[in-house]
Structure formats: C-alpha cells, structure tokens
Computed example of a mutant assay.
Amino acid sequence: MVLDTEETETERHGNFLVAGVAHRGTDVDEAALWASLDDYADDLEDAAISDDYYAVMYDVDTDSGEFTYVAGREVDSADDLSPELTAVEIPQATYAVLRPDYETVDEMVVQIHEEELDSRDDGDGVHSPIFERYGADSDPTTVADREIYVPVRDE
C-alpha cells in the first residue's frame, strides 16, 4: 500500500499557485521537462516568492493513464508570465507526506491514484493535485530527493 494514513506524516498545506512548464501524457521525461524550465528562468525568478521548486501532478485520466505534470515555482500571480507557462492552484488541504522509491513520475502517479485517490475526490469527481516540493539545492530528477504531498480527506 502506498499510503497508510495511520503511519504517514501529514501536514496542512495549500492555497498557493505554481507556474511552470507542463507535459500531458502517460509518461514524463523529467530531466527534459526540468531542463526546459531554464527557458523561463528569468520570467519565473521575477515572479517566484521562494527559492523552492515544485512538481504538480493532476488531471489523471484513469482510463488512459494520462496525467498533467507541471515543473515550476510558487508565484503570487501568473498574470505577467509567458503564455507558454501553465499555472496550477494548490488548494488548502491536509496532505500525507510520502518519500517513495519510484523510478519514474508516471509509475508513482498511477500507483498512488489507483490505490488511494479513486475513493477520494472533491465531491464532483475531481481529485486535488499531488505535488512535490524541492529546495533550491535539490535535484528534482533524482529519486532520493522525492517528497510527495498527497491530499487526504480531513475527518
């Protein structure tokens, strides 16, 4: 089981905006996507409100296995950013903090979604985003640095 809320650390997070480069599909070339973020470094640096980086996974299609993955930074607003960038709102929620050993993002997203999130939605069939947070000195393409925040329903 990927998520055991009785044994897993939880934290209250959310109510922030992540903007960055997006990929939609069933697999993600993480290194290439993170490298493409460099094309927007100046744009994002001006808008970023911290040194942290985020990866956000959302809009998982259980039939096709497709999901959207955004590699980016936390920003106050996406209004003045390049139109090629995607902005994702992270809602306020309680998140389980996972440190799994997945080799790829797609493997992790599908596994977490299948095991845990099918029964947890916002009431209209929409799941809250899953996100990863990385400090400025972390490498978001390595398994060792992964810390994943999965929304759990508040009791």
Rank of each mutant, 00 (worst) to 15 (best):
D124S: 11
L44R: 03
E89H: 07
P100L: 12
Q92K: 05
V109I: 15
L85H: 07
P83C: 01
L44N: 02
D39E: 11
D52N: 08
Y40K: 04
Q111D: 15
A55G: 14
A19P: 07
E114R: 15
T142R: 11
V152C: 09
V143S: 12
V143L: 09
V126L: 06
F16W: 11
Y58I: 01
L98Q: 06
A71E: 01
D139W: 01
R12T: 14
Y53V: 05
R146E: 11
T10N: 01
A48S: 10
S138R: 11
Q92A: 11
V28H: 00
R153S: 11
L3T: 07
D122V: 02
S64Q: 13
A96I: 04
Y69D: 00
V21C: 05
G65V: 03
D42E: 12
D38A: 06
T141W: 01
M1W: 09
T142L: 14
V109T: 14
R12I: 12
T26S: 12
E11R: 11
H113M: 04
S119Q: 14
Y102L: 08
D27Q: 15
T141M: 08
Y95C: 04
D43R: 02
D122L: 06
L33C: 06
L117A: 05
L17F: 00
I130K: 10
G135K: 06
I49A: 06
A41Q: 05
G125S: 11
T62Q: 13
H13P: 01
F131T: 02
P91G: 10
W34P: 00
D39S: 09
S82A: 03
L33F: 02
F16R: 00
D145K: 08
H23V: 08
P151C: 12
F131A: 04
R146W: 12
E155F: 06
T141N: 05
V126R: 01
M57I: 05
D4N: 14
S82C: 02
P129Q: 09
D46A: 12
I90D: 00
T86M: 06
A136N: 03
